[in-house]
Design a protein around this nucleic acid. Sequence first.
DNA 1: CCTCTATTTAATCGATTGTTAGATTAAATA
DNA 2: TATTTAATCTAACAATCGATTAAATAGAGG
Lengths: 216, 216
Amino acid sequence: MFDIEPARRAGRPLGAPETRRNCLDVAERLFAAGGFAGTGLRDIAARAGVTGATLAYHFGSKEKLYGAVLARIADSILPYLPPTPPMPSDPASVAGLIERFLDWALDHRHYATLLLRELMENPDRARKAKRWYLLPLIEAYAAAIRAGQERGTVGPVDPEMTAFHATGAITHFAASTVTIQRMLALDHEAEAVDRFRRTLRDSLVAMLAPAAAGEA
Amino acid sequence: MFDIEPARRAGRPLGAPETRRNCLDVAERLFAAGGFAGTGLRDIAARAGVTGATLAYHFGSKEKLYGAVLARIADSILPYLPPTPPMPSDPASVAGLIERFLDWALDHRHYATLLLRELMENPDRARKAKRWYLLPLIEAYAAAIRAGQERGTVGPVDPEMTAFHATGAITHFAASTVTIQRMLALDHEAEAVDRFRRTLRDSLVAMLAPAAAGEA
DNA sequence: CCTCTATTTAATCGATTGTTAGATTAAATA
DNA sequence: TATTTAATCTAACAATCGATTAAATAGAGG
């Protein structure tokens, strides 16, 4: 709420790449909170200390700005992708693998919200063949589950659906912690996170156990 | 808790209720697809075959119309609430209980989407102490889990978090089936639903088993 | 028939939207 | 030093938003 002296300040006119990054930082938070239609370019510009024209100069249009935000999100997942060469096999390792996605969601809290929004608005507006961002993640998890099954350390679960079930629960949790902790009467957010993490891990380990499941 | 201003009590001349219901039908679909900010009253009015002024006459404002839609959603869950007197105890029964929520989500497909939207937009706009719609559901599931634990038929899981984990996965699934089935290369939607249901059930049963889980 | 009230519409309001044009500034280049 | 380019601003555009107003329509009771 302080639009005093937008950029001026430090003598230099504030180089371009920094402005661009700052706009993206602001935009991703506002888009996550209000959605695409619910966020105005002027809101973004004001909080980034620039004007709407600057946004247009750097990103072209609102849709392209939104696309740039989504691209950054997709990149942020890369470091959390499982390492390809040594494929884990036992249930605990697979659970630990999927838990890394929870780490990502907690490290980039509003990204999960944005991802959820995209999930809902995708079928509506036929975007230009945009890939689903979590698909490689889910495929990697499913591959790990399959590897465990071939080695006999993982029971006969549905690989893709199990991965999707878990990532869905994680995304849903990350996007709603604020509402949730008030709802479950939790004082500290850390407690909610701990309880969810434990529940997620227990759920995965129990399900992937070679003995359990499979009596259709 | 009703605004008694619009429809004046028990007057005879009511060609209105049908209009009102039809507007709600259209509104809930458009709100689910585009969100609150992304849906215009003119779009709703046009597809409902009325004008914007008629919407204002029946609902007062856009926010109140949205509230009316949410109220209908809350009502639609009631028949799917678990029966209170005979509390199920074994894992399979608890899983069947939670599966009813999946039934609800599949019966009212876009309701899950709207619920997800509300979940994200709630912390943003400080709504007037609106309760979370799924809270009674989750509490009922948690109570069933606790009952099973006291009877020794359910293992030492976190009751609320387990219920929340499951309902989160269900909501996420229901709101994204369209995207998902293309993503997992599924031909028929029924197949995706079947696979998810089985995975959900297996996950719950495996986790609630008295032997499993609990090695913190 | 007329009258009253509930319902709906057409027309319009002011505010806000994304976008654009032109001016201005600072740095880079020749 | 003169010129060009990059970056940002102010101001304004047409379009659309939710909301309002006054008038028209419909239907039942007398």
